[in-house]
């Protein structure tokens, strides 16, 4: 196994009286897809937002490349090379693919935008990801299908020499063929050496692309296991009960809310 690129150790996070994350350990390795699963309210989104610098953690360590780091804002996360693709994608419908990919970080030539250069770079990223579904990079995002929009959002995250990409339910709103394309893309990201975190409710997706499954149960990390060593039934048990056989949170008493 490769060295982890991102590691969380004993992370705690509360919102007022609500203790959302309890001593969570979480590991992301380069070249691997780590599926983050858990029921609604298990703390998946909170964990992602802690990594992305949107929520500060209460305690615990964040290690990037083995070095302890503090991520206090989304800009800190971006500087480290951590990018998040949120479920709502956050694309500007009226702008085209290139404009969206470079939004907020446009290349300039003197005072003006380097449109030709950005177009080239956008093409290159899409080509590197073997994206074949987009005919022209000057198409406005409004006219794209759900899968294409997801592709653009992912390509946008990859453009910045990112090293860790977190994807929040990228296939939730997609049909069969489009889910296929997005999963292929997720796999290619990992094959290109990135650490990929895939948040998903869909066991098919998880078992298709993930190398490791991390299951959150009521704010605790129930298990981090290689996908090959586990089964769907086991993962579903981990999600719903927090344990499965010798995996997971040991005694039921400790798993209080």
């Amino acid at each position: 196994m490769s060295q982890p690129i991102l590691e969380l150790r004993g992370v705690n996070k509360s919102f007022g009286p609500v203790h959302v994350l309890h001593d969570v350990d979480f590991t992301v390795r380069p070249g691997e897809v780590t599926a983050l699963v858990g029921d609604n309210g298990a703390g998946k989104s909170t964990l992602v937002k802690c990594i992305a610098g949107i929520h500060p953690t209460d305690s615990g360590e964040l290690l990037f490349d083995g070095e302890p780091v503090t991520v206090g804002s989304p800009r800190d996360a971006a500087a480290l090379g951590i990018e998040v693709v949120y479920q709502d994608l956050a694309l500007c419908d009226n702008l085209d693919i290139v404009d969206n990919m470079f939004l907020g970080r446009e290349r300039l030539r003197g005072l003006t935008l380097d449109d030709a250069g950005m177009e080239e770079a956008a093409r290159k990223v899409l080509a590197d990801l073997s994206v074949r579904t987009v005919k022209s990079v000057r198409t406005s995002v409004a006219s794209l299908s759900g899968g294409q929009r997801q592709t653009v959002a992912i390509a946008k995250a990859v453009l910045w020499d990112s090293r860790v990409v977190l994807l929040d339910e990228p296939t939730a709103a997609l049909g069969v063929a489009q889910t296929r394309q997005v999963l292929d893309l997720v796999r290619r990201l990992a094959d290109n050496g990135l650490g990929v975190v895939l948040i998903s409710h869909n066991m098919n997706d998880v078992f298709e692309v993930a190398d490791t499954v991390a299951a959150l149960y009521l704010g605790r990390m129930a298990a981090e296991v290689p996908t090959a060593d586990t089964s769907r039934a086991q993962v579903v048990e981990l999600i719903t009960a927090g344990r499965s056989g010798d995996l997971g949170i040991p005694a039921p008493e400790t798993a209080t809310v």
Binding site: P74, A78, A90, L91, C92, D93, L95, G104
Partner: peptide, 11 residues
């Protein structure tokens, strides 16, 4: 077009 998206990318 999308003020929230603009905010998230740091505009």
């Amino acid at each position: 077009s999308n003020a929230e998206a603009a905010r998230r990318v740091g505009i």
